[in-house]
Amino acid sequence: MKNFLLHTFTWWNNYTIGTLVALRGFKKVGEDEFGNVYYQGGKSSYGLPKRWVVYAGYADASQIPPGWHGWMHHRTDIAPSEEDYKPREWEKTHRPNMTGTAAAYRPQGAIEALGERPRVTGDYDAWTPGN
């Protein structure tokens, strides 16, 4: 019952019943290492095939690996599942956005950063009116 309610009312968590209806007639193209499933079918208004991803869990577009990202955006017609795709050495693995969490990036000197702020070195003179 819980899964039925989740798939009925939440769009951000995996798929909805409406998504399943919309994907009727689409062909499953493949799956990535995160468990995201990719589909293709029909034609867009530009005449290109429609491509769709159903996320495994929370919908986060940054979870699409580089090879699948290129396929989703029509940079290539060959899906990574149809070829022996190897990521390039400069392609980074997915890191979720950590903003708002304890693991968020905090540059040196930020109020939230741990440790002490560096002391002023004397190379700064405060502005005063009339000088």
Rank of each mutant, 00 (worst) to 15 (best):
L48V: 00
P65D: 05
P96A: 15
S62A: 12
Q108N: 14
T19D: 13
A113M: 06
P66V: 01
N36M: 03
G109N: 01
N14S: 12
A79C: 01
V29Q: 02
E31P: 02
G109R: 08
G25T: 01
V54W: 05
F26H: 06
D60V: 00
G25Q: 02
G57F: 02
W90E: 11
F26L: 01
E33C: 07
P80D: 09
N3D: 14
L23M: 14
G35H: 02
T10H: 10
T128S: 12
W127F: 14
T101V: 06
V21T: 11
G30R: 00
E89G: 09
G18H: 11
G100W: 09
R51P: 03
L23D: 06
E33H: 08
G42V: 00
H7R: 08
P107D: 14
G122T: 00
Y38E: 02
R117Q: 11
F4P: 04
D77M: 14
Y46A: 15
A110E: 09
S44A: 00
N131Q: 15
G67H: 02
D84Y: 09
W90R: 15
K50T: 04
N13F: 13
D77E: 15
M98T: 15
I64A: 04
A103F: 10
W90K: 13
F9V: 00
G109F: 06
Q40Y: 05
W12V: 01
E89T: 12
W52Q: 12
R51T: 04
R117G: 05
A104H: 09
A113I: 00
W68E: 10
T16F: 00
D32N: 03
W11Y: 09
E112W: 10
P87M: 01
G109K: 08
T16D: 00
T10C: 13
L23R: 07
G130D: 06
T8S: 09
G57M: 01
Q40A: 11
G41T: 05
Y105G: 01
A110R: 04
A59F: 02
Y105R: 12
P65Y: 06
D125M: 12
F26Q: 00
Q40D: 03
K2S: 10
P129R: 13
A113H: 03
P87D: 09
P65A: 05
Q63M: 10
G30L: 01
D32R: 06
A126L: 08
P129H: 14
P49V: 07
G35M: 03
R106I: 02
V21C: 03
Y55C: 09
N97C: 07
R51E: 00
V53N: 02
Y15T: 02
I17P: 02
N97M: 11
F9K: 05
A59S: 04
H69D: 11
E116C: 09
M98Q: 10
R88T: 09
A103Y: 07
H94P: 10
F26S: 12
A59W: 04
H74R: 11
R106Q: 15
E82I: 02
